[in-house]
C-alpha cells in the first residue's frame, strides 16, 4: 500500500495557506487500543477557520483520530498514545497538560444528541457554571446568545426550564451544539453528527456549521461523501489507520493523487 511520505505531506500542506499558525498540529501520532494499532504515524496540520472532513471506510480510525483531539480516549482503558497533538502550540499529551482545559477548547457534537438529564437552560449553562460563572444575569445572557446562535431561541424561549429530552431529536442536536459553544471553544469536533437526524435537521446543522467556521476551526468525521462535499473545505482520507491523502475538497474528490483515494471516491472500496 502506498501512503504519503513525509515530503509529500509537506507538499500537500504547502497548498494550504500557512500564513497563520494552525490551531491543531498533529505530529507522528500513534494510537494503540488493547494492543491493536488503530492510528499509524499520523502527521497533519488542520487549517484554521475552515471545515475539515475526515473520511474513510468504517473502522479505519476516523473516530479514534477525532477523539484523540480532545483526549476523550484517555478514559477508556488500555489506550496508548504516542506522538504529539499541539493545540494552540501546547502539546495536549504533554506532561503538564490539564485535560479539562483542553476539552474546554473544543466543543464535541456526537453521533446522537445526548442532552444532559436536566432542563434546556441548565444544559446550556452547565459548562459555564462548571468553569466558575455564578452570575445569574450573565448565565441568562449566555443561554440566550447561544440558543440564538443555533436558531433555537424562538422555538424554546417559553420552555427553557422544561426537560431537554422532550425536544425533537433535531432540536436536541442543535441544543448540544449550543451547549458546546457556551464554553467558548475554539474548535468544534463533529462525530458523524447528523447520522441520527432527518434530512431537514441535517441541513440545518450543516448550514450552522458553515456559518460557524468564520469563528471556529471545525473537524468533522463523516462517512457520507456528499456531506463532505457539501460542507467541507478540506478532506482527509484515512485508510486502515493511516493518512492516505489530505487536500482541498475539490482536489480530493475530483483529482485524487492516490490510487486508494480514487477507488474510495468512486465507491470501489467502502
Amino acid at each position: 500500500m502506498h501512503t504519503l511520505t513525509s515530503s509529500e505531506t509537506k507538499e500537500t500542506q504547502a497548498l494550504i495557506d500557512t500564513a497563520v499558525k494552525p490551531l491543531i498540529q498533529i505530529k507522528d501520532l500513534n494510537v494503540h487500543i488493547e494492543g491493536k494499532q488503530i492510528l499509524k504515524n499520523v502527521s497533519l496540520d488542520i487549517p484554521n477557520n475552515s471545515i475539515t472532513s475526515i473520511i474513510g471506510p468504517s473502522g479505519c480510525g476516523k473516530t479514534t483520530l477525532l477523539k484523540t483531539l480532545n483526549r476523550l480516549l484517555d478514559d477508556s482503558k488500555e489506550v496508548q498514545v504516542s506522538g504529539s497533538v499541539l493545540v494552540d502550540g501546547d502539546d495536549i499529551y504533554g506532561r503538564d497538560a490539564e485535560v479539562t482545559h483542553i476539552r474546554k477548547k473544543m466543543g464535541l457534537l456526537s453521533q446522537k444528541p445526548f442532552p444532559l438529564p436536566m432542563s434546556i437552560y441548565d444544559n446550556i449553562v452547565y459548562g459555564p457554571r462548571i468553569h466558575g460563572e455564578r452570575d445569574k444575569n450573565k448565565l441568562k445572557q449566555i443561554a440566550e446568545t447561544q440558543l440564538r446562535n443555533v436558531g433555537l431561541w424562538d422555538e424554546v424561549k417559553d420552555r427553557l426550564h422544561t426537560s431537554a429530552t422532550r425536544l425533537s431529536i433535531g432540536q436536541q442536536q442543535r441544543l448540544c451544539l449550543a451547549r458546546g459553544l457556551a464554553v467558548q471553544p475554539e474548535i468544534i469536533l463533529g462525530d458523524e453528527s447528523t447520522s441520527a437526524l432527518d434530512p431537514i435537521s441535517t441541513q440545518t446543522i450543516e448550514n450552522l456549521l458553515i456559518d460557524l467556521k468564520k469563528d471556529y476551526t471545525i473537524v468533522l468525521v463523516t462517512h457520507i461523501l456528499r456531506q463532505a462535499r457539501r460542507v467541507s473545505d478540506y478532506i482527509l482520507f484515512v485508510y486502515q489507520g493511516e493518512v492516505v491523502e489530505f487536500g482541498k475538497t475539490e482536489d480530493i474528490l475530483l483529482n485524487p493523487q492516490q490510487e486508494l483515494t480514487k477507488q474510495y471516491v468512486k465507491g470501489f472500496i467502502s
Partner: peptide, 14 residues
C-alpha cells in the same frame, strides 16, 4: 468572544 469566565480554580476542582 470577549466574555471571559472568572478564575476557574482548577486546582480546587481537581
Amino acid at each position: 468572544m470577549a466574555r471571559q469566565f472568572p478564575n476557574q480554580q482548577i486546582e480546587w476542582r481537581l
